[in-house]
């Protein structure tokens, strides 16, 4: 899958450059985040601007990353969700779990 990864101070910024985050590609995102935490990174920001569609596997990969972040005394936050993607977080009550920001810059200021 297409991921652009940048380091901004203490935060790793992952841009998911895919239209769909689903059971076909979400395992790669999960693995990538796992590698970052195991390599000593603590804070990840996942930018979902390009993601138009997310399924339960995509949500599950982000939940896995979130739990991984907490167990490494870090945090995983999300930014720029498209409306239909945001509605999936609401449907599954995950909007109560994740800190979701409307822009990447706002998210970066809130770590």
């Amino acid at each position: 899958m297409n991921l652009n990864i940048e380091q901004k101070n203490e935060i790793v910024l992952i841009y998911v450059k895919e239209e769909r985050l689903d059971a076909h590609n979400s395992g790669e995102l999960k693995l990538e985040m796992q590698k970052l935490f195991e390599g000593g990174k603590k804070n990840i920001l996942v930018d979902l601007k390009d993601v138009r569609f997310i399924d339960s596997s995509g949500l599950g990969a982000l939940v896995s990353g979130f739990k991984n972040a907490i167990s490494h005394q870090g945090n995983l936050k999300l930014s720029t969700l498209q409306p239909q993607v945001k509605s999936m977080f609401e449907l599954t009550r995950l909007h109560r779990v994740f800190e979701i920001f409307t822009s990447t810059s706002e998210a970066l200021e809130n770590y």
């Binding site: 399924d55 339960s56 949500l59 599950g60 939940v63 999936m88 599954t92 009550r93």
Partner: peptide, 16 residues
């Protein structure tokens, strides 16, 4: 149904 208080990686598909 998914337990909304527990953070599981899986188990949301049938609920959706």
């Amino acid at each position: 149904p998914p337990d909304f208080e527990k953070l599981e990686d899986r188990g949301r598909g049938i609920f959706i």
